[in-house]
Simulated scan of single mutants.
Amino acid sequence: MARPPMDDGRHGPVREIDPLASALAGENVTHLVCQCGEVTKDLAGHAVHARAVLQVPGPAWLPVGARLALLLASGVALAIGMMLIAENLLTGTARLVVLGLAGPGAFGVTMGLAVLLRPYIVPNGRHPIR
C-alpha cells in the first residue's frame, strides 16, 4: 500500500509578493515560499520539494496492515506464553499473580512497542524538527 507523504505543518506553501521582481516588472509578481524557507516558483515545484522532504519512513516491502497484524500477534503470543508458564511451571500465589498479570502485562508491552515503533508501523511522513 503506497502512502502519499502527508504535510507535517512545516512544509506548507505560502504565496508571497517578490518586491524586487515586482519593482522590475511594474506589477505584483508572486512566488511560493515553503514554511521551511525554500522558494519555489509554482505549486508543481513546491510539490517536488515537499515530496523530497516528507519521505515516508518504514519498510516499503511490508504493508501497514501486515505490520499491525505482527504487532497484535506478538501481544497475543506474549499473553499466551505467560499463561502457559503460569500453568506449567508455577504453583500457588505465584501462579495466580502471573495469570492475573498475563493480559495487562502483554497489553502494556504491546502498546509500549507500538509507541516506540510507531514510525515504522504506521508512518505518516513526519520527521523530527531539524
Rank of each mutant, 00 (worst) to 15 (best):
residue 125 G to A: 11
residue 48 V to E: 12
residue 125 G to N: 12
residue 61 W to V: 05
residue 94 A to D: 15
residue 72 L to F: 00
residue 52 A to F: 07
residue 34 C to S: 03
residue 56 V to E: 09
residue 35 Q to G: 04
residue 5 P to K: 08
residue 44 A to S: 15
residue 12 G to K: 10
residue 32 L to R: 11
residue 53 V to Q: 11
residue 118 R to C: 14
residue 103 G to S: 12
residue 31 H to C: 02
residue 15 R to L: 12
residue 119 P to H: 09
residue 2 A to D: 05
residue 48 V to W: 08
residue 129 I to V: 14
residue 27 E to D: 01
residue 112 G to Y: 06
residue 13 P to F: 03
residue 100 G to I: 02
residue 2 A to S: 03
residue 32 L to Q: 01
residue 55 Q to I: 07
residue 16 E to Q: 13
residue 50 A to W: 12
residue 60 A to F: 06
residue 94 A to P: 02
residue 57 P to C: 01
residue 76 V to P: 10
residue 56 V to R: 09
residue 36 C to M: 10
residue 119 P to L: 02
residue 64 V to H: 03
residue 99 L to E: 06
residue 88 N to K: 13
residue 122 V to R: 06
residue 27 E to H: 11
residue 62 L to A: 08
residue 90 L to P: 03
residue 29 V to N: 08
residue 94 A to H: 08
residue 82 M to G: 07
residue 113 L to P: 01
residue 118 R to Q: 15
residue 71 L to D: 08
residue 25 A to L: 08
residue 20 L to F: 07
residue 66 A to W: 01
residue 113 L to K: 00
residue 87 E to T: 02
residue 44 A to G: 11
residue 19 P to A: 13
residue 29 V to G: 05
residue 69 A to Q: 11
residue 69 A to G: 09
residue 78 L to H: 10
residue 40 T to Y: 03
residue 32 L to H: 04
residue 115 V to K: 03
residue 96 L to M: 04
residue 60 A to L: 14
residue 20 L to M: 13
residue 80 I to W: 14
residue 13 P to Q: 10
residue 113 L to H: 04
residue 121 I to A: 08
residue 47 A to V: 07
residue 13 P to N: 15
residue 15 R to C: 13
residue 58 G to C: 02
residue 115 V to G: 06
residue 34 C to A: 07
residue 29 V to L: 09
residue 66 A to E: 06
residue 91 T to V: 15
residue 115 V to S: 04
residue 19 P to D: 12
residue 41 K to G: 11
residue 13 P to I: 10
residue 111 M to I: 13
residue 74 S to P: 02
residue 27 E to S: 07
residue 37 G to H: 11
residue 31 H to Q: 06
residue 112 G to H: 04
residue 19 P to Y: 12
residue 68 L to W: 13
residue 32 L to I: 07
residue 13 P to D: 02
